[in-house]
Amino acid sequence: TEHYTFHTEEQAQRAAKKFKKQGLPVTIHEKNGKFTLQVN
């Protein structure tokens, strides 16, 4: 499991699309105004 932190939801969504294209499951969590992208 890898985690990436982004300052905006837009950045997180863009990164999520790249991972999803590779067939990886992705979840985004919002915490304290930051967005954490979790790749399993």
Rank of each mutant, 00 (worst) to 15 (best):
T1V: 12
T1N: 09
T1Y: 13
T1R: 11
T1L: 12
T1F: 13
H3G: 08
Y4R: 06
Y4E: 04
Y4A: 04
Y4V: 05
T5S: 07
T5A: 06
T5I: 12
F6N: 00
F6K: 00
F6Q: 00
F6W: 04
H7T: 11
H7I: 08
T8F: 04
T8P: 00
T8S: 09
T8G: 03
E9I: 15
E9T: 05
E10Y: 08
E10F: 08
E10Q: 09
Q11R: 06
Q11P: 02
Q11H: 06
Q11D: 12
Q11I: 04
A12R: 01
A12T: 02
A12W: 02
Q13L: 14
Q13H: 07
Q13V: 10
R14W: 07
R14D: 08
R14K: 09
A15V: 07
A15R: 03
A15N: 02
A16V: 05
A16L: 08
A16Y: 08
A16S: 05
K17R: 12
K17V: 10
K17G: 06
K18D: 06
K18E: 10
K18Y: 15
K20Q: 12
K20L: 14
K20R: 14
K20W: 11
K21M: 13
K21A: 14
Q22H: 09
Q22K: 11
Q22M: 14
G23D: 03
G23A: 03
G23H: 04
G23C: 05
G23R: 04
G23T: 01
G23Y: 03
L24K: 06
L24A: 04
L24H: 08
P25N: 15
P25S: 15
P25H: 15
P25Q: 15
P25W: 15
V26S: 04
T27S: 09
T27E: 09
T27K: 07
I28V: 07
I28D: 00
I28M: 05
I28W: 04
H29M: 12
H29D: 06
H29G: 06
H29Y: 14
H29R: 10
E30M: 10
E30N: 08
K31L: 11
K31Q: 11
K31D: 10
K31S: 11
K31W: 13
N32W: 04
G33C: 06
G33E: 03
G33A: 02
K34T: 09
K34A: 08
K34R: 10
T36I: 15
L37R: 01
L37M: 05
L37V: 12
L37K: 01
Q38I: 15
Q38W: 13
Q38Y: 14
V39F: 13
V39W: 07
V39E: 02
V39T: 05
N40Q: 11
N40Y: 12
N40H: 13
